[in-house]
């Protein structure tokens, strides 16, 4: 088990390192002259040079990358160009609000998707299975802003059940549902497709295994076979899919938060990218990559704990 954890940890760190290089290159190198990008085409060369010196972007790349990583690791994330606020508080605050929205969507949709996935596998190739599969397939394809716009027009504008612009909810459960249900549905649409498909595939595989045949042949009731023998094995692959979706979720949050004016990390990334607010952008993206990596690491470890076969073969 120790070697397994060490290997996964090393891989995660390597991924994070790669991501930090990508973020740094895209944010700092791609724009060419950062001072020019911020000041626009009408600034004089002297003004641009002065801003570049002030931001420290006239130094060699390797030095800047090292500073960037050191700052991030030691907790000194710099100051926002646009808002003149410390970046860390800004990013952590927005990240928390996004987490509330993302978790709300996950908590609602994971059990629903698993349930429908197992049901589809149970009724394999039948009518119910086809309906679930086609629904999942259609929902996956729906861009978040399309689903969100339709929901806004129907439930926000026409029926007036929900606000058209969502604020961070106060602790009241009714307010949580009121503010978060509409923006979380577009995210849930996409998640439902992925998770239910994986749960279905896993369950079918388990249903076809020898141990299930044995259980059926020795006369156990079908329900008992399903709940005690099949599910423990069939839901394992879903863990990986669910954790992999945290990466998707963040992309989806950018869109949903813009559509619903929700002040999360997605809208922070969008505004800092369009405003060329590099310290905020880099910190936010790196934080998300870190979160994503940790989620995947946890999923891998959980998978290893629940499934001894993986743990043993990798050693």
């Amino acid at each position: 088990m120790g070697a397994f954890i060490a290997k996964r940890l090393a891989l995660s760190l390597l991924t994070l390192l790669l991501v930090s290089v990508v973020v740094f290159l895209v944010a700092q190198v791609l724009p060419g002259d950062i001072g020019r990008t911020i000041l626009g085409p009408y600034a004089t060369n002297a003004q641009v040079a002065q801003l570049d010196a002030q931001l420290g972007v006239d130094r060699p790349l390797a030095v800047r990358y090292f500073e960037f990583v050191r700052g991030f690791v030691t907790g000194d994330w710099g100051t926002s160009y646009l808002l003149q606020q410390p970046v860390r508080a800004l990013v952590v605050g927005h990240l928390g609000d996004s987490l509330v929205l993302g978790l709300f969507a996950m908590i609602l949709i994971v059990p629903i998707s698993l349930g429908f996935g197992v049901l589809a596998a149970h009724r394999r190739n039948g009518f119910v299975d086809r309906i679930i599969s086609i629904t999942g397939l259609s929902l996956i394809a729906l861009p978040e802003f399309v689903a969100g716009t339709i929901l806004l027009v129907v439930f926000g504008v026409t029926l007036k059940w929900f606000p058209v612009s969502s604020a961070v909810p106060n602790g009241d459960p009714a307010d949580i549902v009121r503010q978060l249900l509409l923006p979380s549905i577009p995210l849930m649409c996409v998640l439902f497709g992925y998770i239910s498909r994986m749960a279905r595939a896993g369950t079918i595989e388990a249903l076809e295994s020898d141990y299930v045949r044995t259980a059926v042949l020795k006369g156990l009731p079908r329900r008992r076979v399903l709940f005690q023998h099949v599910l423990r094995n069939s839901l394992l692959p879903s863990i990986t899919v669910i954790s992999a979706q945290t990466g998707y979720l963040v992309g989806g949050l950018v869109v949903v938060e813009k559509l619903f004016n929700y002040p999360g990390v997605g809208s922070l990334i969008y505004t800092s990218a369009t405003g060329h607010d590099l310290p905020v952008l880099e910190a936010a993206v790196l934080m998300i990559a870190a979160l994503f990596t940790v989620a995947n690491l946890c999923a891998d470890l959980l998978y290893g704990v629940l499934n001894p076969r993986i743990r043993l073969t990798s050693e």
Binding site: L18, V19, V22, V26, A27, T37, G247, Y270, A273, V285
Partner: peptide
């Protein structure tokens, strides 16, 4: 490819398109 997959496409697109 694995490193690519770790990165949400929309975020990458926002990063690249706002600079280019």
């Amino acid at each position: 490819v694995d490193a690519f997959l770790a990165f949400p496409l929309v975020i990458l697109a926002v990063l690249v398109l706002t600079t280019l």
